[in-house]
């Protein structure tokens, strides 16, 4: 019965996130205008643009190789994996053992690397500079991810996201170190969502795929940070549909909060601020790891 409930919750979760990704993209196009007091564009405008793009012919650079051709598809698949595995409304889904936080974040990082490689594949000067800037950020962001996850796993007694969120719900984590590591990851999420697009020379289906990957990445980061920072109301898969409904409401609330914060955050984003945020995330993650190691006494 538990397995069956786990499978049903997983399928429901996949359906819901597939529904939420376009809604989140629409909300993120409407909310900034709404917050600034301007007339917002239609809610479905991003997706209308994508459909229009899909009918256009893609122009690929002559220098492009198989890496450039495969990268958009692979980056959508990688973002899809992250979105499918990060729990939204319930813990204990059938994918729970696969939610090792380190590998989930590494999957998101690999998606970004694929896009950098695709840009380098064109041999385009400005694209190369953007790719170098993104790589420079990754040099700092990757250690921040490893250390933040190390701190959280140390505090929760295990590295899977399910375990960490459950420990957070039980109040079993030292608040200081967990807050530092969580704040570090939140800054990284903002930096990942606010980084300027690299592949500006794409068109047609390639552009559509890279925008879908963007939308999925943003949803993955929102789900992840929401689950780590505000896991309240999250159900367990075996608790049944009534608890799921409560978890669903909590998830919608978290997403609405994320849309508000992200809209405000994206409006103040600039390259130097993103860089500073990543450096700050690394410092917070180091402090989180040191505190987590110090918290339980000496050897």
């Amino acid at each position: 019965m538990t397995l069956l409930l786990g499978i049903v919750a997983q399928l429901l979760h996949i359906g819901l996130v597939l529904l939420a990704a376009p809604l989140l993209a629409g909300a993120l196009s409407v909310a900034p205008a709404w917050l600034a007091g301007r007339t917002p564009p239609p809610f479905a405008q991003p997706w209308r643009d994508l459909l229009r793009q899909l009918r256009k012919q893609a122009i690929r650079n002559e220098a492009a190789s198989i890496v450039g051709r495969m990268a958009p598809t692979v980056s959508v698949a990688l973002a899809g994996v992250a979105v499918c595995l990060i729990p939204s409304f319930a813990l204990g889904m059938v994918s729970a053992p696969m939610t090792d936080l380190l590998s989930l974040l590494a999957v998101l990082g690999l998606g970004r690397t694929m896009r950098v490689l695709a840009v380098l594949d064109t041999g385009n000067g400005a694209g190369g500079a953007a790719a170098a800037a993104s790589g420079r950020l990754a040099v700092l962001a990757e250690p921040a991810v490893w250390l933040a996850v190390f701190a959280l796993a140390l505090l929760a007694g295990g590295g899977t996201l399910d375990r960490i969120v459950a420990a957070r719900l039980d109040g079993g984590m030292a608040p200081g170190a967990a807050a530092l590591a969580g704040a570090g990851l939140a800054l990284l999420a903002w930096a990942a969502c606010a980084a300027p697009p690299m592949d500006t020379a794409r068109s047609g289906s390639d552009l559509v795929l890279s925008q879908i990957a963007d939308a999925l990445n943003r949803l993955a980061w929102c789900d992840l940070i929401g689950a780590l920072v505000l896991p309240y109301g999250m159900a367990t898969a075996e608790a049944g549909p009534l608890a799921w409904a409560v978890g669903l409401l909590a998830w919608v609330g978290r997403l609405l909060l994320a849309v508000g914060l992200l809209s405000a955050g994206l409006s103040v984003a600039s390259a130097p601020r993103v860089r500073s945020a990543v450096v700050l995330a690394l410092v917070l993650a180091v402090l989180g790891a040191v505190l987590a190691l110090a918290g339980k006494g000496g050897a």
Binding site: R55, Q57, A58, N61, A77, V107, T200
Partner: peptide, 29 residues
């Protein structure tokens, strides 16, 4: 899971009957 999802995206694009991509000099800013 990545391989399955990439395969699904690839199939969806093939089924989409969109125009085949063209190779040329891309916009160089």
């Amino acid at each position: 899971l990545t391989v399955v999802l990439a395969g699904l995206v690839w199939l969806a694009l093939r089924r989409g009957n969109g125009p085949a991509p063209r190779f040329g000099s891309a916009w160089n800013d």
